[in-house]
């Protein structure tokens, strides 16, 4: 299937890309690995006049350490490298595990961390050809006015389905946005709007350039629980990431985030308090923690797999992740 026509820009410097993006953003798209964007272009989900390729920019790849000991990962670093990098695997096994389960091996070599974090939300009523979408009168997210998942409402429920995002949320990561006024850092959670039809909160001209993993999160135990029907290629249908450390003081540092269930990756609030209570019992009673996670999940019929099963799964995943990390 040929792509629709567009003008391709291949800036060599990030600043040049930011300037182009600020100027062309309204009628443009950023191209990282392209593994999400190119199929979407073929389906007519976007018809940009301009495509700004970030692949030729020097210095957007690689894993390094900041002076304060934090870890910095360039947004154009390939997913494969996150999965294979031995140091990252040792310090942040959760991220490596999530990365290693993305799509297929060849797609992991094409896809990038930044692209994964900025993945468009997915829905069976949306990720379809023009003909297909025409046959249901289009949908809220694209060309239509009705959400077929929740027809009464005015919200888009397309599911955010990237695997690295929950892992990075659980690791308390921040992201750097390069923009016309310079770069700014924000917590990863703040990147996401929660609206399925406009999932990212990016200012004009802003490009996700780096990810920061705090030194404090290094060495945390991690569990990535992913449900998909096949063991390769498939996007997640329900997944969660847990990072956990038992502190010397006896307390627990823990963060858990969900993906593929809501229009944004969701960092579950109140987990540490809940776990403190759970661990007070002998044996630990994880029921409340599992229910906390369950309440944060909003699986709807965005895929052919029933949403009630995805809800069952997220509870099971929460229990298994907690058991694994507390063991």
């Amino acid at each position: 299937m040929p792509l629709p026509a567009f003008q391709l820009h291949r800036p060599r410097e990030l600043a040049e890309a930011v300037a182009l993006w600020a100027e062309r953003g309204a009628a443009g798209k950023l191209l990282a690995g392209g593994t999400d964007l190119i199929p979407s272009l073929k389906q007519g989900l976007f018809a940009p006049d301009h495509l700004i390729d970030l692949g030729a920019i020097a210095g957007m790849t690689g894993i390094s350490r900041a002076a304060n000991g934090d870890w910095l990962i360039g947004a154009m670093t390939r997913i494969h490298e996150l999965a294979e990098d031995p140091t990252l695997g040792r310090e942040f096994p959760l991220l490596a595990a999530a990365a290693a389960q993305i799509a297929s091996p060849v797609l992991r070599r094409m896809g990038t961390l930044g692209g994964n974090l900025c993945l468009d939300t997915r829905c069976l009523w949306y990720n379809q050809s023009y003909l297909w979408r025409q046959s249901c009168g289009f949908c809220l997210k694209k060309d239509g006015s009705v959400c077929h998942v929740a027809p009464g409402g005015r919200r888009c429920w397309a599911a955010f389905s990237a695997d690295t995002a929950p892992a990075l949320l659980a690791l308390d990561a921040g992201v750097e946005l390069a923009g016309p006024a310079g770069a700014r850092w924000l917590p990863l959670a703040d990147l996401y709007s929660g609206a399925g039809d406009h999932p990212l909160r990016l200012g004009r001209g802003e490009i996700l350039s780096r990810v920061r993993l705090p030194a404090a999160a290094a060495g945390m135990r991690g569990s990535y629980q992913k449900f998909r029907i096949r063991n390769s290629i498939d996007y997640p249908l329900a997944a969660l990431a847990l990072a956990l450390r038992r502190e010397a003081t006896g307390g627990v540092t823990a963060r858990l985030a969900l993906t593929a269930l809501n229009p944004a990756p969701v960092l579950v609030a109140g987990l540490e308090r809940c776990l403190a209570a759970a661990l007070a019992a002998d044996p630990p009673d994880l029921t409340a923690a599992v229910q906390l996670v369950n309440r944060a999940a909003k699986p709807l019929s965005t895929s052919t797999v029933p949403s009630d099963y995805r809800r069952d799964m997220v509870q099971l995943q929460a229990r298994r992740a907690l058991e694994a990390c507390l063991a």
């Binding site: 297929s104 069976l124 379809q128 050809s129 297909w132 046959s135 249901c136 077929h148 029907i229 096949r230 063991n231 390769s232 290629i233 498939d234 996007y235 895929s303 052919t304």
Partner: peptide, 28 residues
């Protein structure tokens, strides 16, 4: 284990592609 043509209530084939019509991979 994994293959079926799934239809929406409006008669649309919900999975008209090799991403969602799940032919087993070598790992399955």
């Amino acid at each position: 284990l994994s293959e079926e043509m799934a239809y929406t209530r409006g008669g649309q084939l919900a999975n008209p592609g090799l991403l969602d019509y799940r032919v087993p991979t070598i790992l399955d």
